[in-house]
Design a protein around this nucleic acid. Structure first.
Lengths: 389, 389
DNA sequence: ACATTTTTGTTCGCGATAAGAACATAACAA
DNA sequence: TTGTTATGTTCTTATCGCGAACAAAAATGT
């Protein structure tokens, strides 16, 4: 029972609702619209916004008039307001960006790295180079599961059980870290192809398949923060043994490894991704063998999606990574196999299978979302309003 | 943006929190404890409770004193307060019960039925026989998916797309209907083996496997209210075709049908359940063939649970129906196969696999929960406080 | 050019809420 | 009997959002 409620908390509560609305909105809205949206009076809205402007959280700019009525103002993030930084930490590169309230993201810096934990110091240095008093919270996207929120398993870097505390020390700004596939899904749910869905799934297809279940715009984390390893269910009938230790994983039939295995290439990271791209190119050019590889990949993908849809009943499923190419080149195969894997009574209403709208920016955008989530709450807003900082 | 908030709504909000706390608590608590629990003052608590007593929602009874201090009162459901009725509608029988705020359930009546939609009229008549002004809402548990909340598919009764509106008319009390496996899971999450878990799974194993994902004590419903058909994912490697229209369903290897298929019995309902019980008895008595059938069942069950745990990362998994017997007789097999299906890095922390605590009462208890859920909200409490009804 | 309509901003008084302080009460303990 | 402890009760106070009335600024109509 956390949320105690006094009259004073009421004010904060409504201010958080207002900030959340501004953050989540696709387009900025006016103060009068905000009052209607929140179901409060215009006078109350004026008071709320006034305090938030004072705290440099919101800013009012004249709205271009449309129709009759007294002109009003648009509610936008304050130009000197708080900033969230977001980091997308990839196999051999990283990107640092700044995200305003409302979701606007500007890239600050990118770099390569040597695959050792030193990269975290590099990233910290990059953050320092762009440091500003506006920096409030940092969202960090990395691949691999993060057990209990603090133990990293990044297999393609050979990091087995790296303690987060040794990488992100007390000299870091307040930091929220999460899995990249999960964050990409969250970004699609908040600002992409899954916007407004009550139940949806997102999968990032690379060498592996990672994903997340999205409920009312929130990514599910599981009991130990390691939910989302959908690629390690036996959904497509493979008999091979997977690197994860399990036999028959879906990931063995879908993604880059499956694509290149048929051409005698060993599964692996690094060069494998280029090989997979080469297979895609050849398939697109009409190469029969490459086309068959693509067909198999798409078929296994569809089969798994259908099975998952039976259990979880998503309104839509979005894909990123290789999934985008698979949809572009083999949508029919995916959908046919998906429907075949659906229980008969569901087949007249299959889940939409769509390409993610955010492309490669998904993890970064998702990192910005969780960073803001960590801050858009009663406690932080209250402190900001009273303390001044 | 629903929840507008005025000072008056604040009172209701806290009263709903209080009612919810009373409803969810395992043991009744005192008014002073309630104040601490909700983080409000003793004076406020007194005012809240006073109004709720007036509205016949709560009742105060003297608490046996423990230690020093002025004696206080225990907060219990009002003896003339609202009642929820709950119905468990099964293959050939039904049960009607009354549920108090707080979850106490008393059975009112049971009956058999002829498997035609007439049974709904019978149940309605039974409700009428026990009708009281206290009756406020009715929860209804039935098997089979209920698409979009109003189209029933109960395959073992041969009901394909029965419109709920034709069964439950305007002469019914306010009614909430849901799937039995889902409700059983909900009941375990609220009052059984899954209590307090953030992420959990429940499966009811009968001829089929139905289940639900439970997040923070709430059962997930999916985009079309038909989530939970976990039995129709290809998790155990079967090559048979399922009655649902899909090949390789998990349900083909787990549950009563799988148990009796090995003895040449056709899958089906009715007598099949007794046959399955007979196999269990023989296995327990030492019959080798029956024991092997049980082994296979348990192995397929464990394999599937492991696969699902990879994707959804539950803290615990509870089972009902045949699952209880499978745990009793073959826990080792289930757990071994589950661990083998888990990704290696998860194996040192496998999900607990537990028997449901509520047994056959699960669906009924769950129906009571969703009935109360429909009523324990600001709108209803507000109406009750002001309107008097 | 001017009145009208429409929408929004602003001001002020009102009723209600929960908090907090002070005190009363009823048990137990020494 | 007296002190201790936990709770109930009463009263005052700061704050909140609402509603009503009015002012302001645009578009519209004549």
């Amino acid at each position: 029972m956390p949320q105690t409620m006094t009259s004073a908390d009421l004010r904060i509560h409504n201010q958080v609702r207002l900030l959340r609305a501004v953050h989540d909105a696709a387009e900025p809205f006016t103060r009068a619209e905000a009052a209607r949206l929140l179901g409060i009076g215009r006078n109350t809205a004026a008071a709320l916004v006034g305090e938030l402007e004072q705290a440099r959280l919101l800013h009012e700019v004249p709205a271009e008039t449309s129709g009759r009525g007294r002109p009003t103002t648009l509610l936008v993030p304050h130009p000197q307001g708080p900033l969230a930084f977001a980091v997308d930490f990839r196999e051999d590169t990283w990107t640092l960006a700044a995200a305003e309230l409302g979701g606007a993201v500007t890239e600050l810096e990118t770099g390569e790295h040597d695959r050792t934990p030193n990269v975290f110091a590099e990233i910290r240095a990059a953050v320092a180079r762009h440091e500003t008093p506006r920096l409030t919270v940092l969202g960090f996207a990395t691949s691999g599961p993060i057990r209990d929120g603090h133990r990293l398993h990044i297999s393609h870097l050979g990091w087995d059980e790296v303690e987060l505390g040794e990488l992100i020390g007390p000299d870091w700004p307040r930091t929220v870290i999460d899995n990249d596939a999960r964050l990409a899904g969250l970004a699609e749910a908040r600002r992409g192809a899954l916007r407004g869905m009550g139940t949806a799934l997102h999968f990032h297809i690379d060498f592996d398949i990672g994903g997340t279940l999205l409920l009312a715009g929130d990514a599910q984390r599981g009991g130990h923060n390691i939910a989302g390893e959908f690629g390690h269910m036996p959904l497509s009938g493979s008999t091979l043994r997977c690197m994860c230790g399990v036999q028959g994983c879906w990931s063995l039939d879908v993604g880059a490894n499956a694509l290149i295995r048929r051409f005698g290439e060993a599964p692996g990271y690094g060069a494998g991704r280029e090989l997979a791209q080469e297979v895609l190119r050849r398939a697109e050019a009409g190469d029969v063998e490459a086309g068959a590889a693509l067909d198999d990949n798409a078929a296994a993908l569809g089969k798994g999606l259908g099975a998952l849809a039976n259990a979880l009943d998503p309104e839509a499923i979005s894909l990123s990574g290789l999934g985008v190419e698979l949809i572009r080149l083999r949508r029919a195969v995916i959908e046919a196999q998906c429907v075949e894997a659906l229980m008969e009574f569901r087949r007249n209403e299959p889940p939409q299978i769509v390409a993610g709208k955010l492309g490669g920016a998904g993890p970064l955008r998702g990192a910005a979302e969780v960073a803001w989530d960590a801050v858009l709450n009663a406690d932080w807003v209250k402190a900001r309003l009273t303390g001044g900082r």
